[in-house]
Amino acid sequence: MTDTQSSRLAAETATGGSIVDVSFTVNGSATSVTVEARRTLSDVIREDCELTGTHLGCEHGVCGACTVLVDGQPSRSCLMLAAQAEGRDITTIEGLAGPDGELHPVQQAMMDAHGFQCAFCSPGFLMSTVALLDENPDPTSEEIREELSGNLCRCTGYQSIVDGVERAVKIMKGGSK
């Protein structure tokens, strides 16, 4: 019996047999995991993939800290089961910067704008912003506020985050920083 098989057997014994194999892509890397069916996508991202940049703030789908991109769409990874990620393409905060560490324009803009304070919510905001600007590259201030209203921040009062998005728009349009 291989190690994987024996650990699978142990897990099945412990959980009544609800084990699934899931394959998906995370930040461009093909990933396969064997997990209890009840484990969430956020559990797997943080624990199995060891990508701890995705945060859990409420675990009931309100705060948005756990937001990741699933096939480009912003999704609450705390509300998705890992099994639902089968065949999907996942992007997390760790996947935003370039391979040489060059910041994504949204990251650069948030830094320039003093966007965050404790920054626990920042992975969710950054992923939501990337998705927003992908769909609407030139949003109005109202559209930004509306789109980001699914993410909670307790530190900033949001103004610096909205400023950051507006700066990102300028950078991505090739304007001045």
Binding site: G53, M110, H114, F120, S122, P123
Partner: peptide
């Protein structure tokens, strides 16, 4: 308004919070 030193790690997912 010097840019935040903290952001170098926090904005790329390299923070180390207790859950990590």
């Amino acid at each position: 308004s010097v840019k935040r030193v903290e952001d170098d790690r926090l904005l790329v997912g390299n923070g180390r919070y207790v859950a990590d």
